[in-house]
Nucleic acid binder design. Structure first.
Length: 478
RNA sequence: GGCGGCGUACCCAAGUGGUUAAGGGAGCAGUCUGCAAAACUGUCAUUCAGCGGUUCAACUCCGCUCGCCGCCUCCA
């Protein structure tokens, strides 16, 4: 298995510290607002990476934190006249709910930063004693020049960083690049006791403390969005390695962004979509369907490439997924039986194609391509070799599980045949549709084609497509 | 200014120093159907932004040009 490592800027073989076990740490969200599609992309990518490692019989210890103390949380709390804790708790809950709807499994552990203040204080004390950190008026800073390898992750020289720096010069810092490990807190802010007085931790130290606490001094995989490379991950490396003298993480995985009109989503541009709002706007579908559409869309581009978000791209994802569920329905209808374990001929080839794709830096886009090839083959075999179709259907489910796709039954997918579109602009309600469909079925039985077609046109105008099935039933699609 | 990425058919998107450049969506034709729809079959890039170079051979390696984007500040 080859994984692209930001540290070396090339793909490397995965070599866990403990054979058969993999430790994975991912920087989670700062909980000051609802999460957006970018957060969803991050969560889904690492969910799939975790699933695939497990599929390859590796035991995965996956830690993803919540940053529940931060300037933005404090600012929001102040603005809304409530406590920072309330704000954090609210958005942790919202985050968990969004993740569940996206079919993202819970990590092995989801620590909250504020539960690890003691560990952070201890780390900082150690850094001070090693003379790589210094105290100024109740603040503690990490002295970047004391860590020779500073810049190894972002591949930047400290001089270059200074040259392009847009950082305000703080006269109390020995060097503008020095970053806060501990901040003297202002009245009303969250506060903990420390050897340097009342204060709160800096952002970077949180992840170091939680990662080392739960995964040890040297972890196998560390991930996050590519915007975290500098300074967050660079600083994590500096702090952690300055304390332990060991390599903090062997492999750094960074994913690219979700863009809107090819620009990074951001609050300042106002061009972001929250997961919550996508679910709300698509509420004519069951959550499991929307979640899967989002997953399919987000996994259809390699994680290291940017992906542009649009309504259109979700429609395409929906269409792609429809094909799988149509197949599942057809397989159900043929009533052939096959042992899910039976793997012969094409089956093995498809499975190995999928593994080859995923072994190559988690190429989910190619993996989805294999899913479609299996689907096509299963459709072809439907009449000639129904048993093969059933087996291919089993394979589809097995492989799909890694990606979190194609796991529903066709009934769940098309739970109400008359509620199948992303743009529900129909002027007819479900009851009206049902009665028109009944009327049309009767007309067709009487071979009253004019009437039947008239009803079909009427439904078409309301944005509903009719499909007559061979058994006389009617399927409807918006 | 420093560092990095991208540009593949109408749209999205994999990929490789050399046999047919995945797959999806859309389109077109056929099978099926009362007609449709769905599904299946076929078709849809002699070509991979442009120009040079290396090579027996490049879309794939190197250089330059054009266009787009990201990081260097909190950010998935």
């Amino acid at each position: 298995m080859q994984i692209y490592n930001t540290l070396s800027r090339q793909k490397e073989a995965l070599k866990p510290h403990t054979p058969g076990e993999v430790s994975l740490y991912v920087c989670g969200a700062t909980v000051y607002d609802h999460c957006h599609i970018g957060h969803a992309r991050s969560a889904i990518i690492f969910d799939v990476i975790r699933n695939y490692l497990e599929y390859k019989d590796l035991r995965v210890r996956y830690v993803k934190n919540y940053t529940d103390v931060d300037d933005k949380i404090i600012a929001r709390a102040e603005k809304e006249g409530r406590s920072w804790r309330e704000v954090a708790d609210q958005f942790i809950e919202a985050y968990d709910r969004d993740m569940a709807r996206l079919g993202v499994r819970e990590p092995t552990l989801s620590p909250k930063a504020t539960a690890y203040i003691a560990e952070m204080v201890q780390l900082i004390e150690d850094l001070i004693s090693k003379d790589v950190a210094y105290v100024v008026d109740g603040d503690v800073y990490f002295e970047v020049h004391q860590f020779e390898q500073y810049g190894k992750l972002s591949h930047r020289k400290t001089d270059d960083l200074l040259a392009g720096a847009r950082v305000e010069i703080d006269p109390r810092k020995r060097n503008p690049l020095d970053f806060a490990l501990w901040k003297n807190s202002k009245p009303g802010e969250p506060t903990w006791e420390s050897p340097w007085g009342l204060g709160r931790p800096g952002w970077h130290i949180e992840c170091s403390a939680m990662a080392m606490k739960h995964l040890g001094k040297s972890i196998d995989l560390h991930g996050g969005g590519e915007d975290l490379i500098f300074p967050h991950h660079e600083n994590e490396i500096a702090q952690s390695e300055a304390t332990t003298g060991l390599e903090f993480a062997s492999c750094w995985i960074h994913h690219s962004f979700v863009t809107i009109d090819h620009e990074k989503m951001s609050k300042s541009l106002g061009n972001f979509f929250t997961v919550e709002e996508i679910f709300q706007k698509s509420s004519q579908f069951p959550e499991s369907v929307i979640g899967e559409v989002l997953r399919f869309y987000l996994l259809s581009t390699h994680y290291r490439s940017p992906i542009d978000f649009s309504r259109e791209s979700l429609k395409v994802a929906k269409s792609g997924l429809d094909n799988f569920y149509v197949l599942f329905q057809k397989i159900d209808e043929i009533e052939a039986v096959a042992d899910p374990g039976e793997m012969d001929g094409d089956l093995k080839r498809f499975q190995s194609d999928f593994e080859t794709a995923m072994d190559d830096d988690f190429n989910t886009a190619k993996g989805i391509g294999v899913l479609h090839e299996i689907r096509l083959e299963a459709n072809r075999a439907l009449k000639k070799d129904p048993k093969k179709s059933v087996k291919l259907g089993h394979l589809l489910k097995k492989i799909g599980r890694v990606l979190g796709l194609a796991q529903l039954s066709h009934e769940e997918w098309r739970y109400q045949p008359w509620a199948l579109a992303l743009d529900a602009s129909s002027t007819l309600d479900d009851i009206a549709i049902q009665s028109l469909v009944k009327e049309r079925v009767a007309a067709r039985l009487n071979k009253n084609w004019a009437k039947s077609d008239e009803i079909r046109d009427q439904l078409a105008k309301a944005g509903i497509t009719i499909e007559d099935r061979p058994d006389g039933s009617t399927r409807i699609k918006r």
